[in-house]
Simulated assay, not measured.
Amino acid sequence: MPKVGMPEIRKPQLVKATMAVIDRVGLHAASIALISKEAGVSTGIINHYFGGKHGLLEETMREILRQHSATIIQSLARLPKEAYQQRIIAIVDGNFVGFQAENQVAKTWLAFWSYSMHEPQLKRLQRVNEKRLLSHLKIELKALFGADQAEVIAHGIAALIDGIWLRGTLNPQGIDADKARFIINDYLDKQLTFYSKK
C-alpha cells in the first residue's frame, strides 16, 4: 500500500505504467527500472512509496479491484431490486466488459492470479475479490433459490466466470462478453428449471 504523502497524480501514472510493462514483458521481467522509465519517474520514488515491486503490484491490483467493484455496484444501482436475473448478469458483465476486459488489465489480472499463490498479500486480495463476487451473487440468488441452492449456484457461476475469463484472456481474440453472458444465462436458466421441478 502506498505511503501517506504519495502524490495522487502519481498513483494512476505508476499503476498504468506497471500494467503497460507487464503487458509488454510479463510480470517476472517487469523490473522497477522498466516501470519507472515507463512512468517517467525515478526508481527511488517507487521504492520510497511502495517498498519496491511487490508493493507496486499490490497497489496496481488494489486499483483494478476498486474499479471492478465500482463497475458492479454502479450497474446494480441502475437496476430494480426485483430484477434478480438481470442483476446477476450485471455482476457477470462486470467481469467481462469495460475496464476489466482491456488487454493490459486482463494480462495484469492473469499475472496476479499466478503470483498470488506465492505472495500472502496478493493471496489475501484474491480472497477478498472472490468473497465479494460470491456475496454479490448470493444476495441475488437467494431471492430465486433456497440458501443451500444459492450457495452452490453462486460457486457454479463464479467458476464459469473464472474459466471463461481465463480462456478469453489466453485467446488472441480476447474475451467474448456476449458468449460469456449466453453461457452463464443458459446455466442459470437450467438451474431455475431444475429447482422449480423439485
Rank of each mutant, 00 (worst) to 15 (best):
K3I: 07
P7A: 12
E8N: 09
I9C: 12
R10K: 05
Q13R: 02
V15S: 00
V15F: 05
T18L: 00
M19Y: 00
A20K: 04
I22Y: 02
G26L: 12
L27V: 00
S31G: 10
I32L: 14
A33Q: 15
I35M: 01
K37H: 09
K37C: 05
E38D: 09
V41Y: 01
T43N: 14
I45T: 07
N47E: 10
Y49V: 00
F50Y: 09
G51E: 08
K53L: 06
K53T: 04
G55E: 02
L56E: 01
L56Y: 03
L57F: 07
M61A: 05
R62W: 02
I64R: 01
L65I: 14
R66H: 08
H68G: 05
T71I: 12
T71S: 15
T71A: 15
I72L: 06
I72M: 07
I72E: 00
L76E: 00
R78S: 09
R78T: 07
K81D: 02
E82L: 03
E82I: 00
E82W: 02
Q85K: 12
R87S: 00
I88A: 06
I89G: 12
A90I: 08
A90K: 07
G94T: 13
F96E: 04
V97K: 09
V97E: 09
V97M: 08
N103A: 12
Q104L: 01
K107H: 08
T108A: 11
T108Q: 03
W109H: 12
W109Q: 08
L110D: 10
A111T: 04
W113N: 08
S116D: 04
S116C: 09
H118E: 06
E119W: 01
Q121A: 10
Q121K: 10
L122H: 01
R127A: 09
R127Q: 11
N129F: 13
H136W: 15
L137N: 04
L137Y: 04
E140R: 05
L141S: 07
L141D: 08
K142F: 05
K142R: 15
A143T: 10
L144S: 10
G146K: 14
G146E: 14
A147T: 15
A147P: 13
Q149W: 08
A150E: 04
A150S: 06
A154R: 03
G156I: 15
L160F: 14
D162G: 11
D162Q: 12
G163A: 01
W165E: 04
W165P: 04
L166A: 13
L170H: 14
L170T: 14
P172A: 12
I175S: 01
D176H: 09
D176C: 10
I183G: 05
N185V: 04
N185A: 12
D186M: 09
Y187F: 14
Y187R: 06
Q191M: 14
L192A: 00
F194Y: 14
F194W: 13
S196Y: 07
K198E: 13
K198P: 03
